[in-house]
Design a binder for these strands. Structure first.
Lengths: 194, 194
DNA sequence: CGAAACGTTGACCGTTTTCAATTACAGTGG
DNA sequence: CCACTGTAATTGAAAACGGTCAACGTTTCG
């Protein structure tokens, strides 16, 4: 976590605004209802965001892993709307909320880049949701590949698609058998030319 | 479509920047690669956003219906990255891209509100994706209700969850039978007190 | 009143999940 | 350089699950 650099546009903020913190498993990072003073980047491990309902039950809203930004919405809110708990030994980089707000107001470019980041993220989520409504699995896998989701491991790919990795492997095998994909190595597949 | 009002923060833009257009089914709204001059709101009907891959295949990236904003990402891009086609008779409200960019640069509040909108949207999508990885269906339905997704019709709810409405009804019935939910009317369910 | 849309339930059947086991690498320490 | 260990890649089989088709009751709205 020494050489950690923030994703744009946060890399434009002075390092003095940045703080690194570590949390052991199950440690609460922030609590629902608390006043938000910071945003967080997950640099290592993972955190779970969960909300407590009136009836006393819990719902997991999101699981964020290394590279993810969390609590952006708290920029516009006076309280955290969920709990955040470290799921494992987790490293977080924290940014002062008011410093970010100030910078957004003063630096139009900064605000614009932040907007861009969020717009892209929205786009990505929409595509992912669209993918998950594709059936059956082999079509979803094909669509996922055509849309460039298979860059890392098949495991991660399967996770993005919302399929078990076994189902994903089977779908891949089927597609290869049908000639809709070519296998070019362990876990590597390409779309054959028309 | 006469009384259509834009969602915030676009309702702050002068009506003169707004234009209404109608598209018949299958009509191309914009094309991949073209230079973007406008953003669109779907006021009626639906549009399909799809991308053409190098290998000549098509992938649906998103389907947008009434109330949705599309092509926000084109604010930061010099070309549309996908085709947009009317899926049925569709009404669109168009906003001039440069006018919006100009306003963002000049009016910090406007930019801030836009940021807020996107941040909320990101949050919502993340929760929705999280929901869709919950299995089996009854747990997903329960989680969806706890997270407040069942406000409109069960049909819409089922759609948000990525389940067929039949599966959703069955899950609801199961949950009621298990006492995890109480039915308080046609299509109305509440979480029982602990 | 009739059409249209939502709500609800049953049965059937194909798909996926789950559980289990095997193979293939990559990194680590001896 | 090799055994050793952990993770990713694969494949098989059985059981569970959800999609689809079908039918019907109910509410809404022109």
């Amino acid at each position: 976590m020494e050489k950690f650099t923030l994703p744009p546009p946060f890399d434009r903020l002075p390092a003095s605004e940045l703080r690194h913190v570590s949390f052991p498993e199950s440690r609460l990072v922030f609590q629902q209802g608390a006043t938000p003073y910071e945003l967080f980047f997950v640099t290592e491990g993972a955190v779970i965001l969960e909300r407590h309902t009136e009836a006393g039950q819990k719902v997991v809203l999101h699981r964020a892993t290394a590279g993810d930004l969390i609590a952006e919405a708290s920029l516009f809110s006076d309280s955290y709307h969920c709990d955040c708990m470290a799921q494992a030994n987790t490293g977080l980089a924290t940014l002062n909320k008011s410093a970010v707000l100030k910078r957004m107001a003063e630096d139009t470019t900064f605000a614009m880049l932040l907007l861009k980041r969020l717009a892209r993220q929205v786009q990505r989520y929409r595509r992912q949701l669209e993918l998950r409504s594709v059936f059956p699995a082999s079509d979803r896998v094909m669509a996922g590949i055509l849309d460039g989701w298979l860059n890392g491991t098949v495991l991660a790919f399967a996770n993005d698609l919302g399929l078990s990795h076994e189902a994903t492997y089977r779908a891949l095998a089927t597609l290869v058998a049908q000639g809709r994909l070519h296998k070019v190595g362990r876990g590597k597949y390409v779309v054959p030319p028309p």
